[in-house]
Computed example of a mutant assay.
Amino acid sequence: MKDRTTQEGGCQCGRVRYEATYDPENAYLCHCRMCQRATGGVSIAFLSLAKDNFTWKSEPEWYASSSFAKRPFCQECGTPLGFQFDEGRNMDLAIGTLDDPYGIEPQWHFGVERMHEAWLDTTHLPRKRADEDETLLAKWRESNGGMPE
């Protein structure tokens, strides 16, 4: 890996934490039906990396999503953290769980037989900022002082 990056990440509530060293060129979107059901989305952004380049700082729970693979998650907040075959040297990390997921770009699509094409290019849709929604901002200010990072 020529452009390896190391950073930490974790779940929404912060109970599960990890450190990962990865090559941003191994980022992809998975559209398979299992990932759609596991995340509730039409796809998930993953980074493929060697298990040797990954350390759990605090352990997640695991769901056996098939007879040959499992998925780490946080039982407190429900954040899906990745995917891992029982056998093999690599794993997939959910990009959105990185502390700084910005700047990573997908390099390929996987599970394209279940791809929802209408959700790929959405540049024609109007855009709305969450931090400009006064009702939402008031709720965040009241509950914890401001918008979450």
Rank of each mutant, 00 (worst) to 15 (best):
D131H: 09
F83C: 07
D99N: 15
I95D: 05
T79S: 15
L98N: 12
P24L: 02
L125P: 09
P80E: 07
E113I: 14
A45E: 00
Y28W: 01
D86I: 12
C13M: 02
C30P: 04
E76Y: 12
P101N: 15
R114A: 12
T135P: 02
H116L: 15
H116D: 15
D3T: 03
A118N: 09
C11K: 02
C30R: 05
R127S: 13
K51H: 02
A138R: 10
T135R: 08
G146Y: 10
R4P: 00
D3R: 01
L125G: 08
N26Q: 07
L98A: 14
F83S: 06
Q75I: 03
P24S: 01
M1H: 00
D131S: 08
S58F: 02
W140L: 12
Q36Y: 01
P60N: 05
L93C: 06
E61V: 06
N53M: 08
M115H: 07
C30S: 05
L120C: 13
F54Y: 10
P60W: 03
Q107F: 11
L29T: 03
T135Y: 08
T6K: 06
S48Q: 11
L120E: 14
E117W: 08
P126A: 15
G9L: 03
K139P: 04
H31S: 01
D100C: 10
R4I: 05
K128M: 12
A94D: 07
G14R: 04
S48R: 11
K128R: 11
W56N: 03
F68K: 14
I104C: 12
A138M: 09
W62H: 06
G40A: 02
P101Q: 15
L47P: 01
R15K: 05
V112G: 15
N26V: 00
Q7A: 06
E25D: 03
R37E: 00
I44H: 00
E149S: 08
L29W: 03
M34A: 03
Y63K: 12
R4K: 09
P101T: 15
L98M: 14
G9C: 04
Y63R: 11
G14M: 02
S58G: 01
G78D: 09
R17C: 00
I95L: 15
D3V: 00
A130K: 07
W140R: 09
Q7L: 08
N53Q: 11
F46E: 03
E142S: 14
R89P: 13
V42A: 05
N26C: 05
A50Q: 09
E134G: 04
Q12R: 02
K128D: 09
H109R: 14
F85D: 10
S67L: 07
C13D: 02
Y18C: 00
S67T: 06
R114F: 14
P60Y: 04
L137D: 03
P101I: 15
Q12H: 05
T39K: 04
M91Y: 12
F83G: 08
Q12S: 01
G146S: 11
P72F: 08
E8M: 01
E59L: 10
Y22P: 00
F85M: 13
H124N: 11
A45D: 02
W62Y: 12
E59T: 08
T97N: 11
P60R: 06
S48D: 04
Q75N: 10
A45M: 03
K51Q: 05
L49R: 05
E25A: 07
C74Q: 12
W140F: 15
Y28A: 04
D52V: 07
R141Q: 11
H109L: 13
D86E: 14
T5R: 06
M115P: 05
